[in-house]
Amino acid sequence: MAVKFFVNGMPAEFDGPEEVPLLWVVREHLNLTGSKFGCGIGLCGACTMHVDGTAMRTCIMPVMMAQGRHVTTIEGLSHNGEHPVQKAWTELDVPQCGYCQSGMIMAAASLLSRHPDPSDADIDREMTNLCRCATYVRIRAAIHRAAKLR
């Protein structure tokens, strides 16, 4: 039976094996490639999307778990990059190689929805995504900046 869910507000349907990770369904069937593959075991967070508004690591999330739920990818976070987190990220020029940043932005947006004005301790605890370029100084600054832009 096909899995039916919503991606960036649009209905989507997948009739393959229900344990296929959501990441690959979104990347390969919906051609939304902003979410990245990094580790395949849910550690690095490059694949982070929102499922019903909460950040999820989709490289280990079977597509069946998205049944009936609303999935948001970096492409659907805002029109024209206008989400406060994207604006802050752009203002502070956070990315270097950029590969982790879609996931970082999705994780930060999720954090801000729960903690509108997060402390450094909140950021340390919640932002567990990995950045090999170590852009963490600007990630932290951009989260604080986004909190002000909201």
């Binding site: 096909a2 991606v7 960036n8 649009m10 209905p11 989507a12 349907e13 997948f14 009739d15 393959g16 369904v25 069937h29 919906l30 051609n31 939304l32 490639t33 902003g34 492409e75």
Partner: peptide, 13 residues
């Protein structure tokens, strides 16, 4: 495998 988009096409990168 099929992934049918019902409704308008999603905006792809």
């Amino acid at each position: 495998r099929r992934c049918v988009l019902t409704g308008a096409a999603l905006t792809a990168a």
